[in-house]
Simulated scan of single mutants.
Amino acid sequence: MGQDAATFAKQVDQMRTGAGFIAALDQSGGSTPKALRLYGVTEDMYDGEDAMFGEIHEMRSRIITAPDFTNAKVIGAILFERTMRGEVEGRPTPQALWDVRGIVPFLKIDKGLEDKANGVQLMKPIPGVEETLKEAAEFGIFGTKERSVIHEANPEGIKAIVAQQFELGMTVLAAGLVPILEPEVDINSATKAEAEALLKAEIKAHLDQLAEGQDVMLKLTIPTEDGLYDDLADHPRVIRVVALSGGYSTDEACERLARQPKMIASFSRALAEGLTKQLSDAEFNAALAANIDKIYKASA
């Protein structure tokens, strides 16, 4: 499969200028049972890991095939590895997204977080990352997402987290994909605003070192100071700055995001809020359409 240059250029343009948001459909091993519980599927309703992942894939397929899940409002979607390798309506999921819906596919590549040190949680090592990136490119994946977490305004910790994000980003760029760097700031941090100021300075220093063509995306917590990341969004090496919902309710996340002129949403929990397996297709599609509309308006 893979990407040809014309498709890649079209996808870059959609990410850079498209109106809409990025759907995060990438809950992985640890967060899957929680995502399923919210979807109305409890642990006693499936037996074992394969059945659990079967249930979450059915949920994602239901979202992807819903009438309002198109590039009119959703410009990209982040997938979990199993979802990338799975199928939706008889096609590999990345093709079902791009060829049918016009939605740019991304892949979550991080393998979870290290224990907290210096006020942050770095990413765990990612064994075989080059092979995963090669496989992703063959599936027609456009870019990747990699998450780490900042809990407090610790300069040493934030320096380490940004350095790790950009190091992995260079590996992704070398594989011909576009990285979404995600150093999340915990919304409950007592030093959130201070951490964000440190984070912004570190990111800017690394962006200034990138060569032409080494373009990245950033996925950041909605900042305490409105417009804080506007000049990162304007940096020549940044395709787009997207916002994570970070545990805010859909309404609060959308209300905060609407005050950020140069950020668009990349929400997971907020997108799926109120969606359950027990809903009829008509009810499910209506609830999803309402969530999509709300997040789209906050991103616009």
Rank of each mutant, 00 (worst) to 15 (best):
K262H: 14
M45K: 13
I78D: 04
A137E: 12
Q3M: 15
D208N: 14
T221D: 09
T83M: 05
S280I: 09
I150G: 00
A137P: 03
S28H: 07
A287T: 15
R147E: 00
P223L: 05
L168N: 12
L113P: 00
R259A: 15
N291P: 12
M263W: 12
V178K: 11
K204L: 14
L199T: 02
S245M: 02
P179S: 10
L177M: 13
N154H: 06
I63L: 08
T132N: 04
K73F: 06
P223G: 03
G102C: 01
D251H: 10
S245I: 03
V172N: 08
K34F: 09
A153P: 02
L181R: 01
I150R: 00
A190E: 15
R259E: 13
K111D: 10
L288W: 06
T70N: 12
V149W: 00
N285Y: 10
K204S: 11
H151R: 09
K108D: 05
K124M: 05
Q27W: 06
G112W: 10
A300I: 05
E138A: 15
A258P: 07
L220W: 04
L38S: 12
C254Y: 08
A174F: 02
V88R: 03
L173Q: 10
E283R: 08
K10F: 01
S28R: 15
D110G: 09
D47R: 11
E184H: 03
D208A: 08
V178R: 13
A24Q: 05
S280F: 10
R60V: 09
A23L: 03
G213N: 08
F8D: 00
L244V: 13
P183M: 04
I203N: 04
V216W: 05
E202K: 11
D226T: 12
P179I: 06
A51Y: 00
E255F: 07
A163H: 08
I103V: 15
A233S: 14
K134M: 07
F139H: 15
S266G: 10
L198Q: 06
I141W: 11
L181F: 01
K134S: 14
E252Y: 04
T144E: 04
